[in-house]
């Protein structure tokens, strides 16, 4: 049972969602946008999250989009991970994202978890962001000051940097990135469902590797400095990998019940090696 009370409103349009947010705010009500809601429900049940109102963005047509316009793929933030994995277009349109989100949670949970929810969640892994980071995706945001489009790199710095009242409506990704050769790997402590020790999404573009990682630190990231080392093809592979790993401050590497810091570093090393081999950069 969720021990707090909150008001639930389903918004039918972007404008209505913004209007509702404003209305709740002026009534001094703490408000959250709600999409899949899995994390909100879980944390509220554990007294780790409170709010006076939630605004469900699932009914908003713009947040349910899955279409290609002028070689850009637009994905609505309220699409469930299952909708992304099962959409007939996705295996050609953005196979890396399809593969990556298919590894998040389990089959039934993916019917509820949404793309936007995973990106904005408190969970430290947020693996749906990895393909967007390597593909330089753009994020379409709505808020009290209107609509805007921001680079994922500008809006996602460890967590989503949304201002009060803003929410993600869509993600846009160019063909040149989403159709590039890709590799995805997720290493868990055990089994096929669960959090990653290391999760990596990578593409090869103009003979360079783009790679983003989750599970290594308490936030997903893409590091250009790491990529620079990994792409130094005149150096032996092991040296490129060791130099790339050195970039991560040791104290930032997670050391928890899933894996010790040293084991995580070992897994990262093998993941980077596999990535370079799979993308023909070894």
């Amino acid at each position: 049972m969720i021990p707090i009370d909150f008001q639930y409103v389903a918004a039918q349009s972007v404008a209505e969602a913004i209007r509702q947010y404003h209305q709740f705010s002026t009534s001094d009500m703490s408000t959250r946008y709600y999409s899949g809601g899995t994390e909100i429900i879980t944390l509220a049940r554990l007294h780790q999250l409170t709010m006076d109102a939630v605004i469900d963005i699932k009914p908003i047509p713009a947040a349910q989009v899955c279409s290609i316009v002028e070689e850009k793929l637009f994905l609505g933030a309220a699409l469930t991970l299952s909708q992304i994995t099962s959409h007939p277009m996705m295996s050609r349109a953005f196979p890396l994202l399809q593969v990556a989100v298919n590894e998040i949670a389990d089959r039934t949970a993916r019917n509820k978890i949404t793309l936007g929810g995973n990106l904005c969640g408190d969970i430290i892994y947020r693996e749906a962001v990895l393909p967007l980071l390597v593909c330089d995706s753009m994020v379409r945001i709505a808020g009290p000051n209107g609509a805007k489009e921001e680079s994922i790199h500008r809006i996602f710095r460890r967590t989503m940097q949304l201002k009060p009242g803003e929410f993600i409506v869509q993600i846009a990704t160019d063909k040149i990135y989403r159709c590039a050769p890709f590799f995805h790997v997720k290493r868990r402590k055990m089994g096929k469902v669960g959090y990653p020790i290391v999760s990596a999404a990578a593409i090869r573009l103009q003979d360079n590797i783009h790679i983003a990682l989750s599970g290594v630190c308490s936030f997903p990231f893409r590091s250009r400095t790491m990529e620079d080392w990994l792409n130094q093809k005149h150096l032996p592979v092991h040296q490129r990998i060791e130099e790339a790993i050195q970039i991560i401050p040791p104290e930032l590497i997670l050391n928890d019940y899933e894996a010790s810091r040293e084991y995580r570093r070992f897994v990262l090393r093998t993941v980077l090696e596999e990535t370079l081999h799979q993308l023909g950069s070894a």
């Binding site: 639930y8 809601g37 429900i41 879980t42 699932k58 299952s82 039934t108 019917n111 509820k112």
Partner: peptide, 13 residues
């Protein structure tokens, strides 16, 4: 026609 875990769905949804 889709399975959902009813503990992580609001009834109002």
């Amino acid at each position: 026609q889709l399975p959902y875990k009813s503990c992580i769905m609001l009834a109002i949804e």
